[in-house]
Simulated assay, not measured.
Amino acid sequence: MLCMCPIHIVIEIWRYLTNYVVTIASKYPFWNRTGGADHFLAACHDWAPSETRQAMKNSIRALCNADVSEGFQLGKDVSLPEIYIRSARNPLRDLGGMPANERPTLAFFAGKIHGRLRPILLKHWEGKDPDMKIFGPMLPGVDRKMIYIHHMKTSKYCICPRGFEVNSPRVVESMYYECVPVIVSDNFVPPFFEVLNWEAFAVIVAEEDVPRLKEILVSIPEEKYLSLQKGVRMVQQHFLWHSSPVKYDLFNMILHSIWFNRLHQIGT
């Protein structure tokens, strides 16, 4: 979520965090032992990279805004998936989608038009091609969520363009509904890249190539698409929340990334 906070509030957040770190360092020996390298924080705030850059510069930062152009450090920081849980009691509700041969739509996107990229996406594709179901915000109504989910369940590719920042919950939503994610977000570090080969289950498109989006997708051979969709189904387990953590699920994958990056720091 974008913070529309006045700059003085952002500064206060930074000061609060700095004072908190000073308090921890003065009270407990663990922080000073490694300068905070044995600690981590998790933050999905858009401005988290800048707010934590100084106060927790040695710590592992698990960030949704995993943008290398804004200070995300490969080998130290962790990319957090953005997830929209529709039901806390049943986080796996509506999981799954149509088989690969029963997905008539080539590509789908619907969402708010914020950031610099999404207006370009709509300019080139909204209402321009029946194979490309590209919309702005879906009309409000009781069935809006179900229509959105239906499109994801029946599309081959789900477009995941950046908004104000690099990440989008559509990346994980695509996997929930077994739609191959098409990530259009320069400088984005995808979650769990330390162990997952994203090229095996996702398509990465440069922001400047939005006008060529259909050309790029149509050029992917059917055999390759089937392999990508199979890859989505295979890695889906790693992006699922459960009421209680399950082996290899999202909770455990996040902890693994934190452990992996800490081990990487010790070994260098």
Rank of each mutant, 00 (worst) to 15 (best):
K230H: 14
Q265H: 06
H242D: 06
G75I: 04
E207K: 07
M175V: 11
N19D: 08
P245C: 10
N65I: 03
P190M: 10
N187M: 07
N187S: 13
C158W: 01
N101W: 11
I24P: 01
A66N: 03
P137L: 10
S50H: 09
L217R: 04
E51I: 05
L213V: 01
F72M: 14
A206K: 15
S243I: 14
K57R: 15
L74F: 03
E51H: 07
C158G: 12
V78H: 00
Q54W: 02
D186T: 11
A62S: 09
R233G: 09
V142C: 04
S79I: 03
V68P: 00
G71R: 10
R61P: 05
V246G: 09
M175R: 06
K230P: 05
F164W: 11
L80A: 12
K128P: 03
I183Q: 01
L80V: 12
N58C: 12
G267E: 04
F239I: 06
H151L: 11
A62V: 15
P191A: 12
W31G: 04
A43Q: 05
P49D: 02
I149K: 03
F188M: 13
N58T: 15
I216L: 09
G75M: 07
Y148M: 13
P169E: 00
P29Q: 08
G35P: 08
F201P: 01
T23S: 13
P211E: 06
D209E: 06
G136M: 08
R162N: 04
T52K: 08
A48Q: 03
G97E: 05
K57I: 11
W31P: 02
A43I: 00
P191I: 05
G35D: 04
I147A: 14
M138P: 03
L263F: 04
H264K: 13
S59N: 08
G71N: 07
L121F: 00
A37R: 15
A88N: 06
K112T: 15
R53T: 14
V182I: 12
N32M: 11
R262Y: 12
R53F: 02
L213P: 02
W198V: 11
N19F: 04
G35M: 09
E207V: 13
P190Y: 01
Y28L: 14
C160V: 09
F135K: 08
T18M: 15
L139N: 10
L2M: 06
P119M: 07
I258M: 06
Y157D: 02
F108R: 04
E165K: 15
G231D: 02
D186F: 08
A48F: 05
I120G: 03
D209S: 14
A110E: 09
K57G: 14
R93A: 08
S168E: 01
P221L: 08
V246I: 14
L80F: 04
